[in-house]
Design a protein around this nucleic acid. Structure first.
Lengths: 203, 203
DNA sequence: CAACCTTGGAGAGTAGGACTATCCAAGTGT
DNA sequence: ACACTTGGATAGTCCTACTCTCCAAGGTTG
């Protein structure tokens, strides 16, 4: 990786400055190297814009009251759809989503509601599907929610498996983000598999 | 939506030209409008680059032998990680992934192997996790694969529910892409839910 | 039928993002 | 002593997704 890029990340505040030894020298340790690896992973694998990476890392570093609260704050910091205006969403879509969440017994998601970025992201995505004529009633969405639940349980197992409170926060945010491509690629492979199973012999 | 943008899409070959009525007038119908909606959805919701959208639409439009083959070809056209060199991947990662696929009985995925973009995407993602010290053994990945299977079954149900062969191809590719944000946002909401369940009362 | 408006088409221009290259002054190593 | 490196700052590059400006040919309205 080119030096200029590291300098750029330093400037952008994605990496903490090393310890100054003299005017022309700073010392970087294991921690810095790991952080650099994280940044690279977020930028290249999770394809996040620099500004988002900065926000995410800041949220991970920020102190907070309870672990659960910090987890929520950190995930909320993933803008992943800035400028998604919640306005102009068909009320029918909102009703469908609300029904889905309550059907699953996701009280927390229901109460967090509007303010939670993933919720707005979901509304937007469902509204798009609707506009294009793809089915998106509660019944259709349920299997996806079940799949999401399975993934979430695995996520939380990972988080609980992590060492201290700090490590858990990191695992929560970065783990969630970094396992995302894993889930997506597995889904596509599973699609091919299932398609082969159902249509394999067809002409 | 600004006219200039539509002109741009036309130039880029994302939209077919309308029927010429005279030198200065073309006629656009329902089909064109729908296509425009699709392009918009792929660009804004699925956050795909223009070049990828063109490739995807071309794959959807292209003729082919069997339905299953065309589905595969269409999904393969999603570069979603162009320039991912399969080289330099730790053989241990490859072994883990192979073991995972065979554990699931995904013979097709195993045989399609290297050439299939999602497979390379998976290798890359797992390798990154490994480098950062996150667990990514077969055991850890299994739940995600199970979640992926659930989603894939829902995908194929949707595809089978679609009308003709053409409609199915479209549903396969575009549906897969457009339900992706649904799955991702549901996962994040499920994460919050599960976190609340496990850590809700903790300090 | 004349003044005005619209459209398709082509080319250049813009804004933002992620680097990348160049300089320079202040050290370092031999 | 002298080539070499590093931190820091500034400016430049490349790419992408638009957006603007023109123009000529064709409609539209009073």
């Amino acid at each position: 990786m080119p030096v200029a890029t590291v300098k750029y990340y330093l400037r952008e505040g994605l990496l903490p400055a090393g310890e100054r030894i003299s005017t022309t020298r700073s010392e970087y340790g294991e921690e810095h190297l790991r952080r650099l690896g994280l940044v690279r992973a977020l930028v290249q694998v999770a394809k996040m814009p620099i500004a988002t990476v900065r926000a995410v890392l800041a949220a991970v570093d920020a102190p907070g009251s309870t672990l659960h609260y910090r987890l929520g704050a950190a995930v909320s910091s993933l803008p992943d759809g800035v400028g998604i205006e919640a306005d102009g969403i068909d009320p029918a879509v909102e009703r469908t989503v609300t029904e889905l969440l309550s059907r699953l017994g996701w009280e927390f998601g229901l109460s967090a509601g509007e303010g939670y970025p993933p919720y707005r992201m979901l509304l937007r995505a469902v509204a798009t599907l609707r506009d294009l004529g793809y089915p998106c009633d509660t019944e259709t969405l349920l299997p996806y929610a079940r799949a999401a639940t399975t993934a979430a349980e695995a996520d939380l197992d990972l988080i609980q498996g992590a060492g201290g409170s700090e490590k858990r926060i990191e695992a929560a945010v970065l783990g969630t983000l970094l396992y995302e491509p894993v889930l997506l690629s597995l889904r596509r492979i599973a699609d091919a598999e299932e398609s082969n199973r159902r249509f394999g012999g067809e002409s």
